[in-house]
Nucleic acid binder design. Structure first.
Length: 497
RNA sequence: GGCCCCUUAGCCAAGCGGUAAGGCAGCGGAUUGCAAAUCCGCCAUCCCCGGUUCAAAUCCGGGAGGGGCCUCCA
């Protein structure tokens, strides 16, 4: 099988072919940095991070760009509200954004260009568009003339005529057609501004993406991603201006991710207050209260084009399902003495030992099935299902071979091969990068010592058949949210929760 | 009004013409002194109505319900 990707432009899955063999240029629309991000803002980054990981696994050299919109009306308003400058506000919010991406394991972004750093390029493109007759200056602004662009609306099936009928578009006497959009906005006094042939002003919303993607990735992008809500007008307009300027196809594959919702409704700014009552929206807060990969797994569990159901319940369910993995990793460590998290698995298929395991290996089917799911338009949900199955197979293998009670060396070896497959595959999803926050009192020597003392006392009581006392110790510990687990060999482990 | 999309068990969710993955919860069993953990088993005919086909959750038509976009939005 080979990779197939759904393209919004054609509304179907297509075989994946890049402009340059072996290389992928991927551009994903990033945030306007005027407010700390909410959970919905993390959907795209996590998904496309996974897309990059998988493409890399397939052997592609991926360059991924996420833009930062650091000048715009909302920023101007918010900055004056906070009595700070637009650039200071932008820097602060950007830092918060990046910190959260890092926690979530979004590590693959190669460039994060700021719109304000590309004013020269932006002006150049606008000038080119005017020269070619696609744009016109009007009273300090510059607009793109959609009537000059034959295939305007092709991404979203928009008919320019009907844009007028819609009549919900901002009315401006400066525009020739209601659907025309600003490439350059003349500055009002006190607003951030840059010089241009049309007077001082700032770029319109869409043009920065055309300018930065072209500069960093070339005229034709392999992948352009973003939320479904950006299809129109943002991507439609990007597409129109870019192709009008370059005369080359702008994007090979348009990928749009589904939006996050709470009780069936899109997580949005307009309903923010109402939704806050139902679930935690702020990313920083969510990640403080949850293992970051809980959110990552929640996002990846649903196919990227579908809406993602979010809420406290979902978070809890996913957390519980992760516990199974965490316990297994402890089991693996008990058996081999090695940390799962420190296993060095290859990040490309070419270097993978999994593909050579062969049909007879109990782990091979999992590996193949996982890759096939991902090759089918990045079906991470299906791939995660494979991971759970693999987990189950590994536990069963360990049970059957009695691997914890001093199993045969060959079995331990076979077991380790399977664990290695799990390491390799989970890495593609960016999961299990590091151990979850301490489940056993951290490195606290005192707690560890006291726990050992209690465990020893309980085990002595049990040996003396004084189960009442033993059970009392366990019960009292349970009241403190501590669970004891007796191992076959007579050893007892403990954990929080 | 226009353009998209969705509807699978209590909840989340995969499925893309060949007879329903997986997770959470629940139930029964193995194991355990009892637990915990793990394992085994059980738990849906896919919103409704027609049609195409040897065969449809999957394709077509109609209906019902839900969502997104057309205004800032990941």
């Amino acid at each position: 099988m080979a990779l197939r990707v759904y393209n919004t432009l054609t509304r179907q899955k297509e075989p994946f072919q890049t402009v340059q063999p072996g290389r992928v240029g991927m551009y994903v629309c990033g945030p306007t940095v005027y407010k700390p991000s909410h959970v919905g803002h993390m959907v795209g980054p996590v998904i496309f991070d996974t897309v990059k990981r998988f493409l890399t696994y397939l052997g592609y050299q991926v360059t991924w760009v996420v833009n930062i919109t650091d000048v715009d009306d909302k920023l101007i308003v918010e900055a004056s509200k906070q009595n700070t400058t637009v650039s200071a506000l932008a820097e602060r919010v950007t830092a918060d954004y990046c910190k959260n991406l890092e926690r979530l394991g979004v590590t693959g972004i190669d460039h994060m260009p700021r719109a304000t750093h590309y004013i020269g390029e932006i002006v150049g493109i606008i000038q080119g568009l005017i020269e070619k007759g696609y744009a016109y200056p009007a009273g300090g602004d510059v607009y793109f003339d959609i009537s000059r662009d034959d295939d305007y609306g092709k991404l979203c099936n928009r008919d320019p005529e009907q844009l007028e009928a819609g009549a919900r578009i901002e009315v401006s006497e400066k525009k020739r057609n209601p659907g025309d959009f600003a490439l350059w906005k003349g500055a009002k006094p006190g607003e951030p501004q840059w010089d241009s042939p049309w007077g001082p002003g700032r770029p319109g919303w869409h043009i920065e993406c055309s300018a930065m993607s072209m500069k960093l990735l070339g005229v034709t992008l392999d992948i352009h991603g973003g939320g479904l809500d950006l299809q129109f007008p943002h991507h439609e307009n990007e597409l129109a201006q870019s192709e009008s300027f370059s005369d080359a196809p702008f994007v090979r594959y348009w990928m749009h991710n589904g939006l996050m919702r709470i009780e069936g409704e899109k997580v949005s700014k307009t309903r923010e207050e109402e939704q806050k009552k139902k679930a935690i929206l702020g990313v920083s807060e969510v990640l403080q209260k949850n293992e970051p990969e809980t959110l990552r797994l929640l996002l990846l569990n649903t196919h990227y084009r579908s809406p993602i159901e979010y809420g406290e319940n979902r978070l809890n369910e996913v957390r519980r399902s992760l516990e199974g993995f965490y316990r297994f990793f402890e089991r693996y460590q008990r058996v081999t003495g090695n940390s799962f998290y420190e296993l060095q698995a290859p990040t490309t298929r070419a270097q993978s030992p999994s593909r050579d395991l062969g049909e007879t290996s109990p782990w091979f089917a999992s590996w193949r099935s996982f890759v096939e799911h991902m090759e089918d338009d990045f079906n991470s949900g299906g791939a995660i299902g494979v991971l759970y199955e693999l987990l189950n197979r590994l536990n069963r293998f360990a049970d059957e071979k009695k691997i914890e009670a001093g199993g045969a060396a060959v079995d331990v070896e076979e077991f380790s091969r399977g664990v290695f497959v799990l390491r390799e595959l989970s890495q593609i999803l960016g999961l299990f990068r590091e151990p979850p926050a301490a489940k056993c009192g951290g490195n606290d020597q005192l707690v560890a010592g006291l726990m050992q003392l209690l465990i020893d006392l309980r085990n002595e009581a049990r040996k003396a058949k004084n189960f009442a006392l033993g059970d009392q110790i366990r019960k009292r510990l349970a009241e403190l949210n501590i669970t004891l687990e007796d191992r076959p060999g007579g050893k007892t482990d403990w954990r929080l929760g």
